[in-house]
Nucleic acid binder design. Structure first.
Lengths: 235, 235
DNA sequence: TGCGAGTGTGACAAGATTGTCACCCCCGAT
DNA sequence: ATCGGGGGTGACAATCTTGTCACACTCGCA
């Protein structure tokens, strides 16, 4: 059982795999290899690497497809991915990022730079990892990007809305008092009489649409983020 | 070596300590006690509890002072604190939160509610823990609150500014390409010619004042968040 | 050294965000 | 059943955020 991080190198060119592998091992990592997309996915499942260096152009399932599949699978979503793209191919870079890659590097690249990038990626994954995300029912908060994903769809929230919803969601099931909310979200240090919270809750509910019922009022106290009770269906 | 979380109960009233202790142990936690402020601090250092139930009114160093001291010490800053306040004392609640308490409960309280609050606090600490914060030099990012603390002072940033600075800081020492920034912060999916990034960098630098030099330009590529080089001093 | 590309800057305006207000509705206590 | 307090709502306006533009400055290459 090794303490070293394991890096998967996925590239159809053998000399690239060997060069990159040698440099990563020299930097203190363990490596495994894959020569095409399907082998990449199989290696990910078998070996559970800590990071993946993933070439775009591979036979069979290309790098884009592989990356997308990794991101759609809950058990592999967190694995950092660096994509190797052809020089000057901006569209490739954008496509890679759209499919969830964390970073990219254009061929030809310096192996030294690749090692630095992998190190940086692992450092960031360790610092801003799953702790940056909060998931409750259909709500997924990405704290790094200050983004909400609701039922699989990105939802545009203002800064206040994001903070408000996140505060409540992180205290799911608990009644959060109005004064506490005003203090944490608005920064009010004195007790104030204001209806701004009510207004923002209304706006937030409008944006949440069918999910608005997660945001419930506790009369005389504040609000509570909680899964809606099942509706009794008249038989 | 116990697997149970350890809760420190700090209250000068012995019957409160016993009642709370009994309920927390019944809920599956280990407990230790302290009867005054200094003893609380000593127990924190000796036993390193997972959470603290902290009474405001204690002889010697009161709950506010204790909480503030815990928050100022890097090694204890992360420990969740519930403050026990007197009924109806809004100012006490606010003062507790200002000194870094995570939650409060007014006396008299139901022991059952206290247990629920402790459970919630520990659950939150495990989910949104130190991973929600990024610290680089004088920069401290609180992702939960979407706040920046700079050299000990809260800094007002707009949503874009926060996202931009955080993106760069999380990649400290690396040159981050313009296109990547525009995509990650602005959500541009196509390559656009825009000067908005430059403008926002300027504005951010203005806000950062003496720390603006952390935000460095990599001509032709993008920007890099990096500690300024020491200035050669003419002798 | 000169030139062109890239970056910094101040100013302006459009659009977005935010808070307040007045009215209405709902809920809980008497 | 009534009443008062609390919460929901639509509308409005002030303020803030954001992006663009034109000009100036800087840098790197030939």
């Amino acid at each position: 059982m090794s303490d070293k991080s394991l890096i998967l190198i996925a590239d159809d060119e053998e000399d690239v795999r060997e060069l990159v592998g040698m440099n990563l091992r020299r930097a203190g990592y363990d490596t495994v290899e894959a020569a095409d997309g399907l082998q990449t996915l199989a290696q990910v499942r078998r070996r559970k690497p800590d990071a993946i260096v993933l070439d775009v152009m591979m036979p069979g399932r290309d790098g884009f497809g592989v990356c997308q599949e990794l991101r759609e699978d809950e058990s592999t979503r967190h694995i950092p991915v660096i994509m190797l793209t052809a020089k000057g191919q901006t569209q490739d870079r954008i496509a890679g990022l759209e499919r969830g890659a964390d970073d990219y590097l254009s061929k030809p690249f310096s192996p030294k730079e690749l090692v630095l990038r992998v190190q940086a990626l692992l450092r960031r994954a360790a610092t801003v990892g799953s702790g940056s995300e909060l998931k409750e029912g259909p709500f997924e908060f990405d704290l790094s990007g200050v983004k909400l994903n609701l039922g699989g769809q990105p939802m545009d929230l203002t800064l206040l809305e994001f903070k408000l919803l996140h505060l409540l969601a992180s205290r799911k099931g608990e009644v959060v008092e109005r004064d506490f909310i005003l203090r944490e979200v608005w920064g009010y240090t004195e007790q104030v009489r204001t209806r701004t919270l009510d207004t923002h809750v209304k706006r937030l509910r409008e944006k949440l649409g069918e999910h608005a019922e997660w945001l419930q009022t506790s009369r005389g106290f504040g609000y509570i983020f909680k899964e809606p009770s099942p509706v009794a269906v008249a038989v």
